[in-house]
Design a protein around this nucleic acid. Structure first.
Lengths: 356, 356
DNA sequence: GTGAAAGCGCTAACAT
DNA sequence: ATGTTAGCGCTTTCAC
């Protein structure tokens, strides 16, 4: 890729890089008071003379002082910041983020999204690591997006979105994956497909298990056998999903349809099909899951199962705010261990058709 | 909205909330060494006996210790974390985030996105505040998304995306807004529109200025006058944009087309048109800017100007990594003050047509 | 090879 | 009403 960086105008006065950060000590020195007094003024504590307040405010403004999130959170244990912990920023997690952002407005909290899964790729346990690194200090509470492992949450309030299988110790928000899988499978059966492959999600996630279960159960009850070689794992990720798709489409008795456990995988399937010279949906029908915006933008637009991702993010944040502000005043839900399951719905688009 | 929280199963053993965070002191005590030694082991410093290393590692694993990002960053001044500072998480900034996330993979850095604009709405100066709060300590460098004010960056390396007007003291990434506006305006003129309204972006942003300039210049050079009442400000935000749209569509001599400075505004225009019983594009053509995924999902799909948002995020991060790792080894670009401008392109869809 | 001590910037007790 | 002190969890000299 060509490099298009160009020389720019010279920096304007006042915009150049300054020396180091302005600290509370700088403000205190300039104002002729103690750091403690500055702290009180900045945090609106009682017991400071009006004159002093005004003066300190003045100096704060002059110097452009802002309290360091790091230092204050280390000391005080309350930051007014809520964390959204994700493995990486992809369409799924950013949809959640949009909803979280909307929900946090007006609560007095700020949002900090941390992507801890990019360091070592395929990193299991990023959620534990991220939570340990940020929890208790930097953020007052956290929303965990698709955590794959159970975790000791310690003192930090946590809400999970679409978590691992098994009992959860934290309030959980997810969508009805089983029902969604049933809808998708019925859609394919109704179109006349009998040989249908399933590209599973990330092992360990409950949503992954439920989507497979929904698929298999629906096929079974329709009296259509599911050959073992048609059950693959895509891990919710494009790379592995493409590999699995290649394998399944290379079969002598090729499936006429693929149900992928998420849209990213489904999009990968469509790409692989194209590589192999298969037309979608003429030669191969593809169904996804999630209804991320990208699913409507690919060619052909993807038939998929919608989960209300933004709503899930918003609900999780509202629940978290309740937890952080004290269980008593919890606005949404009450005690730990709750579970909110939102509905899913089929979104028929152009990637599915009757088999040739 | 009905509350669907349901009681859940009892927490499984080992998953319940623990007491407090495991600190380096806990590990030290359990391992029978000093905190300093634990620190050395955890950070891979030299001068620790292999036996000790193994033992400490063991205890770290047992206790599930993770170094606190807050504490270590306060002391050491290097965190391995890059910040992306945004006003809020909406489609524009999350597209940037996707690109940033992709670019950061494999660099050894982690990504922390901070939304500092939701606290007080319409908050000018969130970028300065956020940077002050996180910079120098929490993050090693930051990408600022659409900062509206110039700022003293201090010691923290910063790259700006689509910033304020005027000379910038930091490397900047943006898209060719002027050219994009020309393309959009020419498109409308070509369709036969003569009475075209413009819904401006956020005052203070260079992109906003350039889009207006591109629009006005193109209209002028086509010999089509732009009535002052057709030049409005939407601020890149749905609410104000809708208001402006209502005003302009209530005009006796209603425009036949609206060019909105971003997609969010354009979508708001379409909604207002619908409210007023105007069909898009039959009664009113609408063009947006950005090509956020949502622009293709609305009804009718929006004609818009594409900027390569993900690419912009990726480029900004790569540049930032160069800055943080030392100007010498800068992988992308060299000195401060550079400017990368990426191309824009018209994306014709269904929201534009010849005037009735 | 290891530990004691100091201190990053801030705030909460406790003086004064 | 204000200042002094201590310490959050960690890393970094610098002794030992």
């Amino acid at each position: 890729m060509a490099d298009a960086w160009q020389p720019a105008t010279t920096p304007a006065p006042g915009l150049v890089a300054g020396p180091t950060r302005v600290t509370i000590t700088d403000v205190a020195a300039r104002a002729g008071v103690s750091p403690a007094t500055v702290s009180k003024v900045v945090n609106g504590r009682y017991g400071v003379a009006p004159r002093t307040i005004a003066h300190v405010r003045q100096v704060v403004a002059e110097l452009g002082y802002e309290t360091s999130l790091v230092a204050s959170s280390l000391r005080s244990r309350r930051t007014g910041v809520l964390g959204v912990l994700v493995a990486e920023f992809e369409p799924y997690s950013t949809e959640i983020l949009k909803g979280a952002s909307r929900a946090v407005a007006g609560t007095g909290y700020e949002l900090l999204a941390y992507s801890g899964g990019t360091r070592t790729d395929g990193d299991e346990g990023w959620e534990r690591r991220s939570l340990s690194r940020l929890g208790g200090t930097l953020v007052d509470g956290a929303v965990l997006v698709t955590p794959t492992v159970a975790l000791v949450t310690g003192a930090t309030p946590v809400v999970a979105i679409d978590p691992h299988a098994g009992p959860a110790a934290v309030p959980t928000v997810d969508a009805d994956s089983h029902r969604g899988a049933v809808l998708a499978t019925e859609h394919l059966l109704r179109l006349g497909h009998r040989r249908v492959a399933f590209l599973g999600g990330r092992p360990g996630l409950e949503s992954s298990r439920l989507r497979e279960e929904g698929f298999v159960a629906t096929m079974r009850s329709a009296g259509v056998p599911v050959a073992p070689e048609l059950l693959r794992v895509g891990g919710y990720r494009p790379g592995p999903a493409a590999e699995a798709a290649r394998a399944v489409l290379a079969l002598a008795d090729r499936p006429t349809a693929v149900f992928a456990a998420n849209d990213l995988s489904a999009i990968a399937v469509v790409e692989v099909a194209r590589e192999l010279g298969l037309a979608v949906p003429a030669d191969l029908s593809v169904v996804g899951f999630d209804n991320i915006p990208e699913s409507a933008l690919v060619d052909p637009p993807l038939t998929t199962v919608e989960q209300p991702l933004q709503e899930m993010g918003a609900r999780a944040v509202r629940r978290l705010v309740g937890l952080v502000d004290g269980d008593a005043a919890a606005g949404e839900g009450a005690a730990w261990g709750d579970h909110l399951r939102l509905p899913t719905a089929l979104v028929p688009r152009a990637s599915t058709a009757p088999p040739a």
